[in-house]
Design a protein around this nucleic acid. Structure first.
Lengths: 208, 208
DNA sequence: CTCATTTTGGAATGGTCGTTCCAAGTGAGT
DNA sequence: ACTCACTTGGAACGACCATTCCAAAATGAG
């Protein structure tokens, strides 16, 4: 019963027996994320998830618990990606370019004929956050995180002489947050490239 | 069979016989609007609607058709209210104040503990507009209408010397649109008065 | 009062929901 | 070959879904 990798597996927090095949948790969770992201919580049925994840119902419940828990796992996964993305932008770009790249990430590759997914956290903000304190806390903290991201970059930009001194850090970062949220609303409801470009360009123009 | 009011009723597009009692269509539709506005399309069941509208299932289907049609009626009703509201603001306030009042309408009376309804059109934009062309057209045109509202007021404000000449009409009106959409997202997910006030004040500061 | 018409409460329908359960299959270890 | 844990497909569950239908009650002009 005791196998060589047991302690290592324990340390990594995995289930014990190393011969368990298990489906690729990360890959299937990504598929669930896609479904929830595209259609929302209520409009995605467990049957939809079984179909699109390619995993059996039983395994699905055994692995993630119920639909709510699976949704939270998907949301957490998206949140991790978002966190990683912000951190990459912050590391790789000049402050003002990092902000531009963030806006670009949501506005490039949009389909003018609709069907755009927008931002999963924002979709969830409107579908569930108002009546669900747990979801609201998660979404709210992601938004606060984004605000802090803007704050750091604006300060850094001002230090680098990239962003004018007269820009108010708190005002600008919160306005950027609101603008980005507005943009991802428009991506789902009025996906016109010219419209989005106008908004993004105008937002960046304020930073110098 | 032919009664005095028949022609008048016909002209008004009503059903013929004048002795039909009929429940108060406007009042019950408002209750349906409340339910859809608060919980969204998918999360509101016909049973919920029967309960909160105080109308029998049969009458409900006879009057509005199916759930989809009832939702569209509620959305149309909300859209009419919105249209009327914009027109009132435009008539009663100075340009810049009209814009301020619009933002105030969405941010005053918010509950920091959640449960805020935000903007029905924006909630619908994220829940349904991406995959439903008909809904998207309606939401999209309401947003374009709002953009036009901002445009007119900015032009009027510039004429009145209320808004500085250097403000670009297209840029500013679209940015105001995005900002307002961002605000109504935050109202549902991060209802902090200070946060919203910062954003609204900053948006208005751009107009002089 | 009469009677056409609507409203009402609720039963009925067929489908889908989320969830549980299980018999059979799979594959790495011994 | 045998074991053990997991996976699989699918059946089964009760609840709720949107929708239809109906007999009984209410309504109001004649």
């Amino acid at each position: 019963m005791i196998v060589p990798d047991m302690i290592g597996a324990l340390l990594r927090g995995e289930k014990l027996m190393p011969w368990e095949k298990k489906f690729d948790k990360a890959a299937t969770l990504d598929r669930a994320l896609e479904a929830f992201w595209s259609h929302g919580y209520e409009a995605t049925s467990m049957q939809d998830l079984v179909d699109c994840m390619g995993v059996n119902r039983g395994s699905l419940y055994a692995t993630y618990g119920d639909k709510r828990a699976l949704f939270e796992a998907a949301l957490g996964r998206y949140d991790d990606d978002r966190r990683r993305m912000l951190s990459n932008l912050e590391a790789r770009y000049e402050p003002r370019d990092a902000i531009r790249q963030l806006f670009l990430a949501f506005t490039k590759d949009i389909d003018p004929n609709g069907g755009n997914k927008g931002c999963f956290l924002t979709n969830t903000a409107l579908e569930l956050a108002a009546h669900d304190p747990e979801i609201r806390a998660l979404v709210s903290s992601a938004q606060a995180d984004l605000e802090a991201f803007f704050k750091r970059l604006i300060v850094a930009g001002k230090d680098a002489g990239d962003i004018p001194e007269h820009v108010n850090v708190l005002d600008a970062s919160r306005t950027l947050l609101a603008t980005l949220l507005g943009v991802v609303v428009l991506v789902r409801s009025r996906p016109e490239r010219a419209l989005l470009k106008t908004i993004v360009d105008d937002a960046l123009r304020r930073l110098g």
